[in-house]
């Protein structure tokens, strides 16, 4: 295996635009180029090509989520691993064929340095009519020569409640007055409000919101946002349509609660990618995703999901050293 470590990341400023009008980017020995249809990832000795829509949808999430929990694979070959302060960027590290042929390649970067490169790449490579967070049926295409940009779409941060969505001073509930209309696929979701009867002085504590209505107004897909917090227990609401743009290999156990409709998940071994099972999740279903798998979801119709995370920062290490089983319950 080739593994390069950089205590100080080498970031090369973007060069002049290529003939399609896009900037090239380089960090360490990785070089990124895009043309009308593809992102090309050049690394010592070879290159890897990813369709540009696939690449931008994955890149947008990796950026918005701050490299997320664990591994974010853009496809079966390329991805990032969050080490919380540093990030490993890899080719073939979680691919059995690359590993057996010793063709994997990894470099480690300071998170802030890779984030800066990814931010710039996403901003430059996203054309004006394409929103990488939108369902394919709700946005234009990313193809062609450079034409405009869509900074409003790509600058989204992962929204997170500190205590609960809708509390005073906390994450704001989505509303039509903010330009967030009910999504076409949730036109039948009730928009009624809870009845609140606080006594004087308890207005900030007797609180409830219509979470389903809030979710029905999401203008993104596959983009969990924290809506309720109990210490390190984070309930993250997300609406899903089409395909999860990344293959997520978590570094801890996470749980899914299917609130509406149906999602089919492909589950694979986290390291080898060997198929492990399919999870068919229907409304009301709850399932754990063990810490030793990776997963990708398919949502035929826009649906509502709660992703339940444990934000305890010690968990990746405790799983890595075998202190914790990959499974949340034994029975």
């Amino acid at each position: 295996m080739i593994r390069e470590n950089f205590n100080v990341s080498t970031v090369v400023p973007p060069q002049l635009r290529n003939k399609q009008g896009y900037q090239n980017f380089q960090i360490g020995q990785f070089r990124f180029e895009r043309d009308e249809y593809f992102a090309q990832i050049l690394y010592p000795g070879n290159r890897h090509i990813v369709p540009i829509e696939t690449f931008l949808r994955a890149l947008a999430r990796d950026v918005a989520w701050g490299f997320f929990y664990g591994t974010v694979s853009f496809d079966a070959i390329f991805g990032t691993i969050n080490r919380y302060g540093t990030v490993e960027m890899f080719i073939g590290l979680h691919n059995a064929a690359y590993r057996s042929a010793h063709k994997e390649y990894v470099e480690t970067f300071a998170s802030k340095d890779l984030r800066r490169v990814f931010d710039s790449m996403l901003a430059d490579w996203t054309n004006q009519e394409f929103d990488p967070f939108a369902a394919p049926g709700e946005t234009g295409t990313p193809y062609g020569r450079k034409h405009g940009d869509n900074l409003k779409a790509v600058d989204r941060e992962r929204s997170a409640a500190k205590r609960m969505v809708g509390l005073p001073g906390d994450l704001k509930i989505r509303a039509g007055s903010d330009g967030l209309e009910v999504n076409r696929s949730f036109a039948d979701v009730p928009q009624d409000q809870p009845e609140l009867h606080p006594e004087p002085g308890f207005e900030d504590q007797v609180r409830a919101v219509n979470l389903f209505a809030h979710m029905s107004r999401s203008d993104t897909t596959w983009n969990p946002s924290v809506v309720s917090v109990v210490q390190d227990s984070l309930l993250c609401a997300t609406t899903e349509e089409y395909v999860l743009p990344i293959i997520h290999g978590n570094d801890r156990v996470e749980w899914l609660v299917q609130l509406s409709d149906e999602i089919i998940w492909d589950i694979e071994d986290k390291i080898t990618g060997m198929p492990a099972c399919k999870l068919v999740m229907k409304a009301g279903d709850v399932a754990a995703l063990p810490a030793d798998i990776r997963h990708r979801g398919y949502a035929p119709k826009r649906s509502m999901v709660l992703v339940w995370e444990n934000n305890d920062g010690t968990l990746p290490h405790r799983h890595a050293v075998g202190e914790l089983t990959p499974y949340p319950v034994v029975f």
Partner: peptide
């Protein structure tokens, strides 16, 4: 309600603690 499930290829479904509320 309609319940989904774990369609195992090579895993123990118990590891997924699959239920329906």
């Amino acid at each position: 309600y309609t319940k989904g499930g774990v369609q195992s290829i090579s895993v123990n479904p118990k590891h997924y603690a699959f239920s329906n509320v």
